[in-house]
Write a protein that binds this DNA or RNA. Structure first.
Length: 485
RNA sequence: CGGGGCGUAGCGCAGUCUGGUUAGCGCGCGUGCCUUGGGAGCACGAGGUCGGCGGUUCAAAUCCGCCCGUCCCGACCA
């Protein structure tokens, strides 16, 4: 049996992180491959997780005054081409529609890689007066980017995301919006997904194609690689001038609007897997977990009917209390099999109920996030189950965040010179932070040497910083570097 | 898109080098019995265009060519 068990185990995280990631995603039922390169199915378990994430973010987007809308999937080539930097950035990975039925189209249509162009062209028609501003619209959509190298959730040819597109009267207002949404992302990702992030600005070479400034929230995965978890762009007036988005201001002068755009994607699902998971599979943050409690009956021949009935009753009580719950009543599987299965799927709490518990009017509650068996299981009087579950779900959410934050902090290292920098990137990965006064060429050199990129210049800066770790010149800010997904 | 690995039943694999009956094994799946507190046991059974196309041959999972998918490493990107 030991061998059988081994055969079914996941590849350990420490042995081969990539392999572990793929196996976890597939076996937990989050996604599956299809016959189209880079296109995955998001399976019901993964999609429910995404829906929970989406709902939590959607509430925040609406609470900050935005409305949802839906714009077309297709972008006429002429529109996409209008902004030079933008088309240069996205054209290489565009999928094109050239035929409708048997007829070749007069103008080919890009399947949106992002919607600045299509939305900009529409905004030009909608906005005439300063009274029409601000325009605060978000859309939940799919986009297509024909990536050369794909990975489940982290880089798929088609992915789901939200993209906010706003127009403002002044630069200051647009900048305020850009940072407001960056803050919304930080709050969403930290509170709901229990993933700590560093909020900051992208360098010139890393910013979005066509943007004036790009801001980002950067997370650190368990293998020491960074993941860009969300971006918020101040688009300035680039797109406004290209698409002719003008308004007549109070002073009777025609002006171009100031725009922002911001997005997060299904990539975040990959982030959850990579930040919280362990050798037994997923560990899902309770706030977004598709299933928060799994009820598993321990059936014996003598007590079969009574135990099943009790399991159903516990499940119903949890559901009535607003907890997302399931009962696994499959009698052909042993309890042990189910423990492993639901561990793999990352369910935060397991409720075990058997004859011994019933005799004592208690239930057994086991925490997914703890590995020590004595510590993870608790026996609770049945009438205190709901309050205990509520408390434990909160505790787990906090514990996951704290664990991820501690890991991130332990793997964030400060350097004063390039020799230290290279040594840490090579030997330990993680975030490497240092005073920065370098150029785009300097960044390129660092990337060539170490594969590390400038992740962001954090919004929160120390009072004083030493000389640039790379150039030795006086610096007035620190920057985060890492190898990244 | 360049370099490398892999592709045989739902999953994991053997067989390929050295072509030759009916392509095997474990898990899973179905039925029955039995069992159930960390992936139980026995019996019977179902399940295969050997990734695809083409070529060589009396004969191809096996040899050759092209293509596709996936994983890893690079260049590019959420």
């Amino acid at each position: 049996m030991a061998e059988k068990e081994f055969a079914q185990k996941l590849t350990p995280k420490s042995q081969d992180f990539s392999q572990w990631y793929v196996e976890t995603v597939l076996r937990a039922g989050l996604a599956d491959y299809t016959d189209i390169k880079g296109c995955m199915v998001i399976r019901p378990y993964g999609y429910t997780l995404w829906e929970n994430m989406r709902d939590a973010l959607d509430r925040r987007i609406k609470a900050t005054g935005h409305e949802n809308a839906y714009f077309p999937l297709f972008v006429p080539e002429s529109l996409l081409k209008l902004e030079a930097e933008h088309v240069q950035g996205f054209a290489p990975e565009c999928a094109w529609v050239t035929y409708a039925g048997n007829d070749e189209l007069e103008e080919r249509l890009a399947i949106r890689p992002t919607s600045e162009a299509i939305i900009g062209s529409i905004y030009a028609r909608w906005i005439q007066s300063y009274r029409d501003l601000p325009v605060l619209i978000n859309q939940w959509a799919n986009v297509v980017r024909w990536e050369k190298r794909t990975r489940l959730f982290l880089r798929t040819s088609e992915f789901l995301w939200q993209e906010g597109h706003t127009c403002h009267r002044t630069y200051e207002e647009a900048q305020e919006e850009t940072l407001r949404m960056l803050g919304v992302y930080k709050d969403f990702i930290e509170t709901e997904l229990a993933i700590p992030v560093v909020a900051g600005q992208k360098s010139e070479s890393e910013k979005f194609a066509g943007a004036q400034m790009t801001y980002t929230v950067e997370a650190l995965m368990a293998d020491g690689l960074a993941l860009q978890a969300g971006t918020s762009h101040n688009l300035g007036q680039h797109f406004a001038k290209v698409f002719g988005i003008k308004f007549l201001d109070e002073d009777n002068v025609e002006k171009y609007v100031w725009q922002t755009s911001w997005g997060v994607s299904t990539r975040l699902v990959g982030g959850i897997v990579m930040v919280h998971g362990d050798d037994n599979g997923l560990i899902l943050p309770p706030r977004v977990a598709p299933c928060q409690t799994i009820v598993i009956p321990v059936i014996t021949t003598e007590h079969r009917a009574a135990v099943l009935e009790k399991a159903r009753a516990l499940h119903a009580a949890l559901a009535a209390a607003g907890i997302r719950t399931r009962a696994d009543l499959d009698e052909s599987k042993s309890p042990g099999w189910k423990y492993n299965e639901w561990d793999l799927r990352g369910v935060p709490l397991r409720i075990e109920i058997g004859p011994k518990d019933m005799a004592k009017n208690q239930v057994c509650i086991a925490r997914r996030d703890l590995s020590d068996r004595a510590q993870k299981k608790a026996f609770i009087p049945e009438d205190r189950m709901i309050e205990t579950v509520r408390r434990l779900l909160d505790e787990i959410q906090t514990a996951l965040f704290n664990r991820a934050r501690d890991f991130r902090d332990q793997n964030t290292r400060t350097v004063a010179n390039y020799a230290q920098f290279r040594d840490i990137i090579e030997s330990q990965r993680g975030f490497v932070v240092g005073p920065w006064a370098g150029s785009a060429d300097d960044e390129a050199k660092i990337k060539e040497d170490t594969k590390a990129t400038l992740r962001c210049i954090p919004l929160e800066q120390p009072a004083s910083v030493g000389p640039c770790f790379f150039t030795g010149r006086p610096a007035n800010r620190i920057a985060y570097f890492a190898r990244a997904y």
